[in-house]
Amino acid sequence: MAELTYVDAVQKLEAGDSFTLQDMKNLSYADLDKLFEELKYWKVYGNINTKINAIKRG
């Protein structure tokens, strides 16, 4: 199984897919931290797509 990265996880969420706790276990600590920060941002502001698009642009 290929290791899940932060970008893969965000793209899965954006597409409406999910990932397992095992997938989350395979994330590096840095990627897991970024993912949790992304989820908190989405929860507060309700629009994950704005930040995802900024990430994709670099």
Rank of each mutant, 00 (worst) to 15 (best):
G16R: 03
Y29R: 14
I48C: 02
K25F: 15
S18V: 15
A30R: 11
L21Y: 06
N53V: 06
M1A: 13
L27K: 05
L27N: 10
K51E: 04
K51S: 03
L27W: 09
Q22D: 00
I52Y: 01
E38P: 09
N49I: 00
E37D: 09
A2I: 11
I55P: 01
L21H: 09
M1K: 08
L21E: 10
K34P: 14
N26H: 11
G16K: 02
L27S: 13
L4T: 00
K56W: 00
I52K: 02
I55N: 00
N47D: 14
K34F: 14
G46S: 06
G46Y: 00
V7F: 13
N49W: 01
K34L: 15
F36S: 09
K51P: 01
T50L: 09
K43Q: 09
G58L: 08
E3Q: 11
K56N: 05
L4K: 00
D31F: 12
Y41H: 14
E38D: 09
V7I: 10
N49A: 05
T5H: 10
E37Y: 08
E37G: 02
D31W: 08
A9M: 00
Q22Y: 10
D33T: 04
Y41T: 05
G46C: 04
K40C: 02
I55C: 01
M24H: 15
E38F: 09
A30I: 12
E3R: 10
M24K: 14
A9D: 02
E38M: 12
G58C: 00
G58E: 07
D8T: 08
A15S: 08
N26D: 13
N47R: 10
T20A: 14
V7D: 06
I55R: 03
Q11W: 02
I55K: 07
K12I: 05
T5W: 12
Y45F: 14
D33W: 04
I55Y: 03
G58F: 04
